[in-house]
Amino acid sequence: MALDKIGIAKRIAQELQDGWYVNLGIGIPTLVANYVPEGMTVEFQSENGVLGMGPFPFEGEEDADLINAGKQTITVNPGASFFDSATSFAMIRGQHVQLTVLGAMEVSEHGDIANWKIPGKMVKGMGGAMDLVASAENIIVAMMHSNKAGESKILPACTLPLTGVGCVKKVVTELAVLEIKNGAFHLIERAPGVTVEEIIAKTAGKLVVPAFVPEMVL
């Protein structure tokens, strides 16, 4: 069965490593914070100027001055810090943040990503996404394999305006974990009960399928 959003977040959480600083984008990526493996210490950075993000506040304890990049009210953990936007992106560009997880509208077999604009229809802006993808050593994209019309979002080349080129290393969808290298998607794992055939059918970009594709263990 295909994963739901929580399943995708749980699978991405398995990529975390002890001692990492991690930036989570809006949407599914935000959920990753809920599934940090037991005994592991990971600090979450939000590009609007906080390191050491904690859970959402209890009702009545919201602070308008304390939000994440999705403009949601948050709390901070002991040892947190606040800083200005230039310092925040120094952390990101300077590769002090080890992992970036973000959503996408399209990803290409060369690791290009598009997630900020649909010409003539939707222009929200790139926010911090271009800075994040241009610099992070590890970029994992959390997305659905196909759009609402059923068309693959895992493509030979992006059709929408790009956010970054050759930067995405790994994609986790409701169907599969894909690694991007040498100009192709490599099928690493499939969601429990999902067949390799379904993944092949829903992947428009070049897909390398090994003889054995293990199921994800969530």
């Binding site: 859970p55 959402f56 209890f58 009702e59 304890e61 939000i67 999705g70 949601q72 009210t73 948050i74």
Partner: peptide, 8 residues
């Protein structure tokens, strides 16, 4: 506040 998010 734009996105008031809380936990129970």
């Amino acid at each position: 506040i734009e996105q008031r998010t809380v936990r129970k």
